[in-house]
Design a protein around this nucleic acid. Structure first.
Lengths: 119, 119
DNA sequence: CAGGCCAACTAGGTTAACCATGTTGGTCGC
DNA sequence: GCGACCAACATGGTTAACCTAGTTGGCCTG
C-alpha cells in the first residue's frame, strides 16, 4: 500500500485515514479497524500504524479508548456546544497539516539552496 | 525532569519546548540542543525526545535539517497558533495567506534553480 | 599547500519488544 | 442460573536497535 514516494509511511497512512474521515468513508463515532488489522491492510508494521494513529489522535480527529478501540471523533462525544460542520473542520485540519508539511519541505530546500550559494 | 504526573513524558517535553519557543527562551532561527543533549537534559530516552520533537515538527513549530540540527521556525507570517478550536474563518484566512506565501517562495526557488541549471 | 577521504557528529524512519491498562466474552465452580 | 475468574484482545507509553542520509572537521596523502 505504501507508495515509494519520499513521504514516510506513517504520514502516508495518516493522510489516508484523514481522507477517509473527511470523505465520510469513516463516519463520526465509527470505530477504526484495530491496529493489527490496519497494519495488515497497509502492509505496514504495527509501529508505523501506531504513529499514524497517534498523529491523528493528537490532531483531535480520532479518539482512542483503551481496551475498546479508536473512534472517529464525534461532536456530541467530545464537546457539547459546537459550531461548524465536521466536514469543514476536518478539511481545515487537513489543509493546515498539508500547508505545514509543504512549508517545512520548502524551508529545507531554501536552506540548502542558500547554503550552496554561500560557498 | 519528567514529572510523575499522568501526562506522558513525550508530551511533557513537547509542552516544555513549545513553551520555551513561545516564551522567547528559544529564539526563532535558533538551534535546539541535539537529540542526545535533550535526552540528557530531560533525563529521558532518545525515543521520547525524538517523539516530542516529531510532534513539534509536525505542528510546524520546529524545522529539522538532517545533519545539522533542529531549528525554531523563524517564519512568523504563515505560522498559525496551534491551539485547537480556532475560529474557522480566521483559520481559512491564515491558510490562504500561507498558501500565497508558499507559492511566492516556491517560485523564487524554482527561478534560482533554473538560472543555476542554465549556466 | 591542496584536495580528497574518513570518522564523528546530526536528524529521521522503521521495526520489534516489553509493559501497563482497560474491555469483553467464555468458562468453571458453586 | 449466577458470580468469579481468566484468557484474549484492545490502546498507549517506553525503550532499544538498526539503517539511511546529510554535515563537519580533521587528518593524511600526493
Amino acid at each position: 500500500m505504501v507508495k515509494k514516494t519520499g513521504r514516510p509511511a506513517y504520514l502516508q497512512i495518516a493522510d489516508d485515514l484523514r481522507e477517509q474521515v473527511r470523505g465520510g468513508s469513516l463516519a463520526p463515532g465509527a470505530p477504526l479497524p484495530s491496529t493489527a488489522q490496519l497494519a495488515e491492510q497497509y502492509d505496514a508494521s504495527l509501529s508505523v500504524v501506531k504513529m499514524a494513529v497517534g498523529i491523528l489522535r493528537n490532531e483531535g480527529l480520532l479518539i482512542g479508548q483503551q481496551g475498546k478501540g479508536v473512534f472517529v471523533r464525534d461532536d456530541e462525544s467530545s464537546e457539547s456546544g459546537q459550531g461548524p460542520a465536521v466536514d469543514l473542520v476536518s478539511e481545515v485540519i487537513e489543509l493546515r497539516t498539508a500547508v505545514r508539511d509543504l512549508s517545512e519541505r520548502l524551508a529545507q530546500v531554501e536552506s540548502t539552496l542558500s547554503e550552496r550559494s554561500d560557498r
